[in-house]
Design a binder for these strands. Structure first.
Length: 365
DNA sequence: GACGCGTGGTT
DNA sequence: TAACCAAGCGT
């Protein structure tokens, strides 16, 4: 910490800001959330961009803003439609928190996104990064917005060897950003650091020879840019054997289940599925039959194994065996019968979209 | 502070 | 190809 302070003593802050911001204004990408300074759109973009690539976000952002162009529109939208607009983006608690926070802004702040750190931080899903991003980008307030890019860029510029995977390390970078941030144009400054991280100061093989601020870069001067940032490794995801069954009745309706409101894939819809116990003698098919009977009072003819789907999460891997079941009774109300047309209103995890495709292929033949 | 929480692209 | 990565937050 004191080490960083020492480095900043001799740092040409004003020149650095100028060179970085000039580069940014020439080279910045033309992204849909950069068309205006609407705090609501900045907010939506920042939530979508959490742990998610720009190229992935762009079409979701355009569609989302098309459907919910204002705070008011999103605040009054129904949950099912909002979740559907997030389908496939992942980390679904982001959109549940966003929806809740937007309602809060509509009701308690007259529809105006608050512009103080204290107020904006109270909103669900707005943490230290998103707080700084909205305040600086939308309101031009000099707050740090420290994300992975910022830590990577400044770890190299200032040769900071702390492990950026540790939560407390973020504070070191926030302190450095308070010192370095342009008071005249904090919006461009914060975006410029992130843009530099995305385009030039990349995780592997950074393009130092194209870097507009390499003359300020401690790591480049010492040739250690490839060693930085220091980042400890994550644990490997744990594999789970699963089985899922697409149940249909004699009206051609499919039976789907809504997941609980908290935890993994909260509030998304799915085909009935279960974890398979490896140690039992029962076949997967037999376990599925028992499961749907006990869980949903459903009687069905179950097919042979029809396909497999792998679903990789951050912390889990589902290896899903897929079956098809012909219902011979009416199951519990925890299963919703839907036509394939009605199904389109509901949000499913990607793995269950793949399961549905297996069913479609199978029912063609 | 560690862990839970998605998905698709890159090396 | 397995590992790693991408504009984090809540509990």
């Amino acid at each position: 910490m004191n080490e960083v302070k020492d480095k900043l003593e001799s740092f040409q802050i004003h020149d650095f800001q100028h060179d970085l911001i000039s580069w940014y204004k020439h080279e910045k990408r033309d992204l849909p959330w950069r068309k205006d300074q609407d705090p609501y759109k900045i907010w939506v973009s920042e939530i979508m961009l959490q742990q998610t690539r720009v190229d992935t976000v762009i079409p979701y952002f355009n569609a989302f803003i098309g459907k919910f162009p204002t705070i008011e529109a999103l605040a009054t939208a129904d949950e099912e439609e909002v979740l559907k607009a997030w389908e496939g983006l992942g980390y679904y608690s982001r959109v549940r928190n966003l929806h809740s926070a937007v309602k809060e802004v509509a009701n308690s702040y007259a529809g105006v996104v608050p512009n103080t750190p204290e107020e904006i931080s109270k909103l669900k899903g707005v943490g230290p990064y998103t707080k700084g991003a909205i305040l600086s980008i939308a309101y031009n307030i000099p707050e740090p917005a420290v994300d992975g890019n910022v830590m990577r860029v400044f770890s190299r510029i200032l040769s900071i060897w702390d492990d950026i995977a540790k939560p407390k390390t973020r504070k070191i970078f926030e302190e450095a950003t308070y010192k370095l941030i342009s008071k005249e144009d904090p919006s461009s400054f914060n975006q410029a650091v992130m843009e530099l991280g995305a385009l030039i100061c990349t995780p592997t093989s950074p393009s130092c020879l194209l870097c507009p601020v390499r003359e300020y870069c401690s790591a480049f001067a010492e040739g250690v840019q490839a060693e930085l940032p220091v980042k400890s490794k994550k644990k490997k995801p744990r594999p789970l054997q699963m089985a899922a069954v697409v149940l249909y009745d004699d009206h051609g309706r499919l039976y789907i289940h809504k997941r609980p409101g908290t935890g993994l894939l909260a509030n998304l819809w799915e085909f009935p599925n279960m974890e398979i116990k490896a140690e039992t003698k029962e076949s997967y098919r037999e376990q599925v039959k028992q499961f749907i009977k006990e869980e949903y009072q459903a009687e069905a003819e179950i097919s042979e194994l029809t396909g497999t789907v792998e679903h990789v999460f951050s912390h889990l891997i589902w290896n899903i065996s897929v079956f098809i079941g012909t219902l011979t009774n009416i199951p519990s109300e925890d299963l919703l019968p839907v036509t394939e047309e009605e199904m389109k209103k509901y949000a499913f995890p990607v793995s269950h979209q793949k399961i549905y495709k297996i069913y479609q292929e199978e029912s063609k033949s």
